[in-house]
């Protein structure tokens, strides 16, 4: 049995939302990277919706960190939405929120 990932992209105005469903890990990354590359240049806010995310490994988290750095460089915001307690705790331990706060908040 193989892990799978589905990513659905929805753009409204200058807000782009990525709905992530399944397992975001080393073996399933490609659809997520592809959708990130398709984000419109005009986007001012990218929302990653984790409501249907089952598992994320370090490679998946690396993609989120890279998205945040790209947001800093290209001047758009990133919001992580709908994550369960377990994933939120993991992101807290790794310092993902600290990276977001430092790079994307006013003055960052």
């Amino acid at each position: 049995m193989y892990d799978t990932l589905e990513v659905y992209k929805k753009s409204e105005g200058n807000v782009c939302t990525l709905y992530v469903s399944g397992v975001l890990d080393y073996s399933t990354m490609d659809p997520f990277i592809k959708k990130i590359q398709e984000i419109e240049v005009s986007s001012k806010l990218v929302i990653v919706n984790f409501e249907r995310l089952e598992f994320i490994d370090s490679t998946g988290i690396g993609a989120i960190i890279n998205l945040v750095h790209e947001a800093k460089n290209k001047n758009f915001k990133v919001k992580l939405d709908g994550m369960n307690n377990e994933i939120e705790e993991l992101f807290e331990t790794l310092g993902v929120f600290q990276v977001m706060k430092s790079l994307l908040e006013v003055g960052g």
Binding site: E92, Q98, V99
Partner: peptide, 9 residues
């Protein structure tokens, strides 16, 4: 004792 991953910031 919390801190950001190496390579994060």
């Amino acid at each position: 004792a919390k801190g950001v991953m190496l390579g994060g910031l």
